[in-house]
Design a protein around this nucleic acid. Structure first.
Lengths: 331, 331
DNA sequence: TCTTATATTGCAAAGGTTTGCGAAAATGTT
DNA sequence: AACATTTTCGCAAACCTTTGCAATATAAGA
C-alpha cells in the first residue's frame, strides 16, 4: 500500500499546507487556480477521498440514516426500503438498515446502535410489542430527528408518514357493499398496532353505516401461519363466509394457502379482498382484488418528509398516503 | 441539552484525566476498582456512548459492513439481507445497504460510497452488466475485504459464496428425466452472469447424458415481464412443451402469470419446475415443485466466510451451498 | 516610494478517542 | 529506613479534517 491519500500527505508532497489543500479541493475562492489545479491532479492520482469519520468528527454532520423495520423480508417493507435507499442516495445519504425482529428489546438495541453511529436521522416502523416510547423521546430530544412510518405511534407529537388506514378500511367496506357480499370474514394483523385498529374500525363502522344486513366476523393473526389456520377454521364452519378480507400481504398469503388446501375456487366458492402492494395479488389466478398500498410511494414520501424535518426543524407532522382499489377477479 | 457525554466531560467532572476515564470504562487492569466504580456510575448517569467516529479515526477499525445488491426488493436478496443483518448484529457489525439497480455505473458509485465510509468489508452480488472488475480489485488491494455472493465473478482469485449452480442444473435435469418429461422449455435469466451459464450448462449437459430423447429449448429473460412474454410465446406454439423450467423466482413469476393468462392448468396442461426459495411456489395451487435456494442459508454462510477472511486474511476462497428438491404438485 | 487594498496561503485549535510511556503513590522487602 | 515493586494514574501524540484568523505576497493607487 502506497502512502495513504490524506490531506496531509498531499500537502507535504506538494510542499503546501493542509488547509490550502482542503480549500483547493472544495474550490474555495481564496485559492489560486494554479494551486487548485496542482492539488486536484495529485488528489485524483492518489484517489483521494475525504475520511468521512474525520469529517463527521469535525462538522458533526453525518450522512447516514438509520432505518429500523420489524423485518426486511416482508412484503411491504422491502419495497419501502428500496425506495428510501434510492431517494437517500440522491441526497447523498446512505442507509444503515436494522431489523427489530418484532422484539421491543431488539428495537431498543437498534436505536442505541443508531445513536452510537450518530446517524443524521432515523426511520422507524414500530414493532407490535412497542409500548414504551421513552427511548424514542430521549433520542429525539438529543437532536436526532425520527420519522415514523407505517406502524406509527398514536400520539400526535411525532413525525409520521403513513397510509390513510381508516380510509383503507372504509374503502374495503364500500367495495364489499358494492359487490353485495353478505357474510364477511375479516382477518387482521396484530391488534396492538394502530394500523390494525384503524383499518378494522374503518371497515366495521363504514359497513354498519352502509347496511345493517352485512354480517361481519373478525379475527387476528400474527403471521402467515396463523392466518392460514384462522382461514381454515372459518372455512370448516357449516356456514362459510362469502368473502374474506385480508389486512395485509402476510395475511393474504396464509388465506390463499388455506383456500388452496380446501380446494375452493376463487371467486366462485369464496371471494377475497386484500390490502396489498399488488405483487401477490397479481400472481394469483384469478388476480386478487386489492386496495393498493405502495411501499415505494410511502418511502419517497418518508424521505421527503425527512428532508423537511431536517431543514425546518419540524417536530410533529402527519403525512398520509391515499389508497385506491385495484380490481382483480377475486370478488 | 446538558453537557455532552464525552470522556473529556466525565473526566473534568470527576477531576481525573481523560485516559483514566477511557481505561476505566474498558475495565483496564491499571485502574483501581474504586475509580472504575465512580466513572461507571457517572457514565451511566450521563448515558455515555463512545463516539464511533472518533473511535474509528483512532483505531482505523469500523464496525460497518457494506452490502451491495442489484435490488433489495427481489425474492432472493431480501432474505439474504435479512440473514446477514442478523448475523452481523451478533458480531457487533451493522449494515449499510446499497442497491446497484443492475447498473454497473451505480454499482461503482456504491463501491465508492463504501470506501468513503471506510467499511470493514463489502458483500457484493454483481449486476449482470458488470464487466470491469478493476474497481473491485483496487478496493480489495486497498485492504477492504470483499465477499461476493450469488452473482459472483468467474475468476477464482476472489472470495465467493454461492450456490452449487451447476448442481442445481443437474438436479433439474434428473428431475425432468425421472418425471419422464419429453419436451422442455427452459427459461433463464441474463446470460451474462455466471450463474445463468452454469445452471444452463448443468441442465443441458446432464439432460443429454441421461437421455437423447428429451427435447429442450432455452430462452433468456431479464425480468418478470420478459419471462411472461417468452412463456406466452412458447405456449402459443402449435406444439407446446410439457414442462417449463424457471431459473429463478423472477422468471417463475412471469411464467405463472403467463400460464394463468392462457388459462392452462398445472400440472395437467403443463408442468413447472423452478429454482426458488420456496415462497412463491408455496402460494401457488398446486404448489410448484422447486429446487431450493435459501437466501437465509447463503447469508449465514457469507457472514461466516467474511469473519474468516477478516481474521485469517484469506483472499481467495469459494464456498458452495448445496440445494435440494422440494416436491410440490406442479409436475 | 509609501500606503492601502486584494489575492493567496499558513497556523493552530478543535472534534473525541486510544495508547505508549513516564510519573507518582502505595505497598512490600530487607 | 532505604530500596525495590507494584498499583494507579496523567501526559501527549496521533487519527484526519475544517475553519477563523493571521501572515505574507502581490498589485494598485497616490
Amino acid at each position: 500500500m502506497n502512502t495513504k491519500a490524506t490531506l496531509k500527505n498531499i500537502a507535504s508532497m506538494l510542499g503546501i499546507s493542509i488547509s490550502t489543500v482542503s480549500r483547493a479541493l472544495k474550490d474555495h475562492p481564496d485559492i489560486s487556480n494554479e494551486t487548485k489545479k496542482k492539488v486536484r491532479e495529485l488528489a485524483d492520482l492518489m484517489d483521494y477521498e475525504p475520511n468521512a469519520f474525520a469529517v463527521y468528527l469535525r462538522t458533526n454532520e453525518s450522512k447516514v440514516i438509520g432505518l429500523i423495520v420489524p423485518e426486511i423480508s416482508n412484503y411491504f417493507y422491502h419495497s419501502f426500503v428500496a425506495a428510501v435507499e434510492q431517494e437517500a442516495r440522491k441526497k447523498g445519504y446512505s442507509l444503515i438498515i436494522l431489523q427489530s425482529a418484532n422484539d421491543a428489546a431488539v428495537e431498543e438495541a437498534n436505536l442505541k446502535l443508531c445513536k452510537l453511529n450518530r446517524v443524521a436521522g432515523i426511520f422507524v416502523a414500530l414493532t407490535s410489542e412497542t409500548r414504551d416510547m421513552a427511548t424514542f423521546d430521549r433520542i429525539k430530544s438529543s437532536g436526532i430527528p425520527i420519522v415514523f412510518f407505517d406502524k406509527v405511534p398514536e400520539d400526535n407529537h411525532y413525525v409520521k408518514v403513513c397510509l390513510a388506514d381508516r380510509e383503507v378500511g372504509k374503502l374495503a367496506a364500500r367495495t364489499i357493499f358494492d359487490k353485495k357480499k353478505k357474510k364477511v370474514f375479516a382477518l387482521f394483523g396484530n391488534p396492538n398496532i394502530s394500523i390494525t385498529r384503524k383499518r378494522k374500525q374503518g371497515l366495521v363502522d363504514e359497513l354498519k353505516k352502509l347496511s345493517p344486513f352485512v354480517e361481519i366476523a373478525t379475527a387476528t393473526a400474527n403471521n402467515t401461519e396463523e392466518a392460514m389456520q384462522a382461514t381454515l377454521d372459518t372455512l370448516s364452519n357449516k356456514s362459510k363466509p362469502d368473502l374474506i378480507f385480508c389486512m395485509s400481504d402476510e395475511i393474504l398469503t396464509g388465506t390463499i394457502m388455506a383456500i388452496n388446501k380446501k380446494g375452493l375456487k376463487i371467486p366462485k366458492d369464496i371471494g377475497v379482498l386484500a390490502v396489498s402492494n399488488g405483487f401477490i395479488p397479481k400472481i394469483c389466478n384469478p388476480e386478487i382484488t386489492y386496495i393498493e398500498t405502495s411501499g415505494a410511494v410511502l418511502g419517497k414520501k418518508a424521505m421527503k418528509t425527512f428532508m423537511e424535518v431536517l431543514e425546518k426543524g419540524i417536530t410533529k407532522k402527519m403525512d398520509v398516503i391515499e389508497s385506491k382499489l385495484v380490481e382483480g377477479g377475486s370478488i
